[in-house]
Design a protein around this nucleic acid. Structure first.
Length: 587
RNA sequence: GGGGCUGUAGCUCAGCUGGUUAGAGUGCCGGUCUGUCACACCGGAGGUCGCGGGUUCGAGCCCCGUCAGCCCCGCCA
């Protein structure tokens, strides 16, 4: 299979079974060890390394000399015989370490300048700065770790395709040049040359198209879809990213959970992990109450509890003051929290402040001795009533949920990081369900849609849309894994009247609705099956399964946090002529 | 948009309280070496201390600004 005009085998594939064979190899000079009379070369290709030996007993003199002069990362073609290494010279750390190539010919086919960043690294060497790795991406990608990440990514992608195809999903491509959307993330815009003053948008997701495919009767659609969002980046957010996007007709939430679980189980299997279905369910409300987040890490305990009633009785002054309106006292009974040092607690409080908290009240229980910022208000029995045993600690905050939830989420994760308890399981998947349909606007507090405007309200809650919007649930669900959101989906609105109401709720005038979404509304009036779907954040899945520290390590050519491509230098200024042709001006 | 960390040799880093000649490892160049595998040993070259300004007798070090990379908040339907 790997045999070509230029070579007979891949370097990393050679084993004891090849001994005696004449081979021709092509690869990169990974490392060279020149002992004077004998020269060793580690030759590298996609499959790995093999040692090539040049010696006076088998290599012609000119080949021996040439081997001694090879620089790192030079591409060479080598001919020779596979031989067993002397017993004392075997290398059990190399897959090919029982054999070597006795080279009889050597041709430099791709000379290389000394690389600005090393490809071959010592075991303890630090990686070069990320800036340099991105600038010289062709070299960084030669590193076996990065190559392995991208090979895994390839396998995951093939497995997703196969799994969905077997579930009768049809892979359909949708446009990259599309139409701006009214809400959500900022769009990447593409000016139209043919239509002055008009713009395409790159898709934030294929959302509308996949719904149109359901209207068209495709029944089940999927796509490994590129998506674009012009927002600020994070280690797990790139401006262009890949989703495993799917949609199906005549489905309810349970059907979608089944499809998505099938894909996720397959992907984890591909990475060598057996996981169980069905995934447990947790409501959004419960997740927020117990973990302070809609993507809880369920590998660990340390749930958040409401201590308002118990703590109120103690008459702690600053808590009394803060306990008004919708404020509650919420806390975590940290098993083994006695091991947290004063410094640890200070750093927890600091972390709490980073997410908007004002402080962290704490008490440690060691025997009868209570210490901590609110120690004088508590007895051992009082702490015991909160679930704080001997050797444990109580961490608590007071305030409205919108403050205490993110603070306790952060505190909980920091506590887990510091105490490093054994996880209850390695792979904690869950469905987070019953998301609210609305969330309060950050400035005005008025209800705004929490999801995209095609998400169906929960049928049981529709009657309260006007009277009590915040109590209404959406048919929206997230898949969560070890504290990471893997993706989200929903059952869609198929009633054009309801869809119009939702658009109106977004502040769109009837004329605007027709202009922007007339095509969707027309489609919904053309005979629409009930449908819903999901989108899995594929890059994030690849990152987690590769054990990578950032999305950049599972994307061949990623952007920096400033959305620049350092290798090719994008974005870049355009020529005045090109700009003029697009009927736009640059200020 | 806001905050934090980092920026010194090709690469990874050290550089004390501001002090006169800025170091180490590795890579690179030259040499010795026939079983190495991060080969070993000897010698050598290599610096716009990110950039601009300021304070000072004197700045890699202090101050202001700026650029880049990373991390966090906002943002990401």
């Amino acid at each position: 299979m790997s045999r070509t005009t230029w070579r007979t085998h891949r370097c990393g594939a050679l084993r004891a079974e090849h001994v005696g064979q004449w081979v021709r190899l092509g690869g990169w000079v990974h490392r060279r060890r020149d002992l004077g009379g004998i020269v060793f070369l580690d030759l590298r290709d996609r499959d790995g390394l093999v040692q090539v030996a040049f010696g006076p007993g088998w290599s012609p003199p000119d080949v021996l000399v040439a081997a001694g002069a090879l620089g790192s990362e030079t591409v060479v073609v080598v001919e020779g015989q596979i031989v067993v290494r002397p017993a004392s010279a075997r290398n059990p750390e190399m897959a090919t370490g029982d054999v070597e190539v006795h080279a009889t010919a050597l041709v430099v086919v791709g000379p290389a300048e000394t690389p600005p960043i090393p490809v071959a690294r010592g075991k303890t060497d630090e990686l070069p700065a990320e800036e340099l790795r991105l600038k010289h991406r062709h070299l960084d990608l030669r590193r076996p770790e990065l190559l392995a990440n991208l090979i895994l990514r390839h396998r995951l992608m093939q497995r997703a395709r196969r799994t969905l195809s077997e579930l009768e999903f049809l892979e359909v491509e949708t446009p990259i040049l599309t139409k701006p959307t009214p809400e959500g993330a900022r769009d990447y815009l593409v000016p139209s040359r043919l239509h002055p003053g008009e713009f395409y948008a790159l898709p934030q997701s294929p959302q509308i198209y996949k719904q149109l495919l359901m209207v068209a009767g495709f029944d089940r659609y999927f796509q490994i879809a590129r998506c674009f969002r012009d927002e600020d980046l994070r280690y797990d957010r790139q401006p262009e990213f890949t989703q495993i996007d799917l949609e199906a007709s005549f489905v309810g939430t349970e059907d979608v959970y089944g499809f998505v679980e099938a894909v996720l189980v397959a992907l984890w299997d591909e990475a060598g992990h057996a996981i169980e279905r069905p995934f447990p369910r947790i409501t959004w409300r419960e997740a927020m109450e117990r973990y302070g987040t809609d993507k809880p890490d369920l590998r660990y305990e340390f749930p958040i509890a409401d201590w308002t009633a118990q703590v109120q009785l103690l008459g702690v002054p600053f808590i009394e003051q803060a306990l008004r309106d919708e404020a509650r006292v919420r806390g975590i009974a940290v098993k083994g929290g006695g091991a947290l040092s004063r410094k640890d607690v200070d750093q927890l409080a600091e972390a709490a402040k980073q997410v908007g908290g004002s402080g962290l009240a704490w008490a440690k229980r060691l025997g009868d001795h209570i210490s901590g910022s609110v120690a004088k208000h508590f007895t051992a029995e009082g702490l015991g009533a909160l679930g704080v045993g001997d050797g444990d600690a109580a961490l608590m905050v007071v305030g409205p949920d919108r403050v205490t939830s993110p603070v306790l989420d952060r505190v909980r994760m920091e506590v887990i990081r510091r105490l490093a308890p054994a996880p209850t399981r390695a792979h904690a998947f869950a469905w987070v369900v019953d998301f609210p349909l609305f969330e309060p606007d950050h400035e005005t507090g008025t209800p705004v849609f929490a999801h995209h405007p095609f998400t169906s309200p929960h049928p049981d809650d529709v009657v309260r849309l006007e009277s009590d919007p915040f109590s209404c649930r959406a048919l929206h669900y997230d898949a969560v894994y070890n504290g990471n959101e893997l993706g989200s989906g929903s059952i869609r609105i198929t009633d054009p009247a309801i869809q119009r109401k939702v658009f109106a709720h977004l502040g769109l005038a009837p004329g605007e609705i027709e202009a922007r979404f007339g095509f969707l509304l027309a489609a919904l009036q053309a005979g629409t099956p009930p449908h819903g779907g999901f989108a899995i954040g594929f890059d994030r899945v690849a990152m987690l399964l590769a054990g990578a520290g950032s999305l950049r390590d599972v994307i061949a050519f990623p952007k920096t946090t400033a959305a620049r491509a350092l290798f090719e230098g994008a974005p870049a200024p355009a020529s005045p002529a090109d700009i003029a042709a697009l009927h736009i001006e640059v200020k």
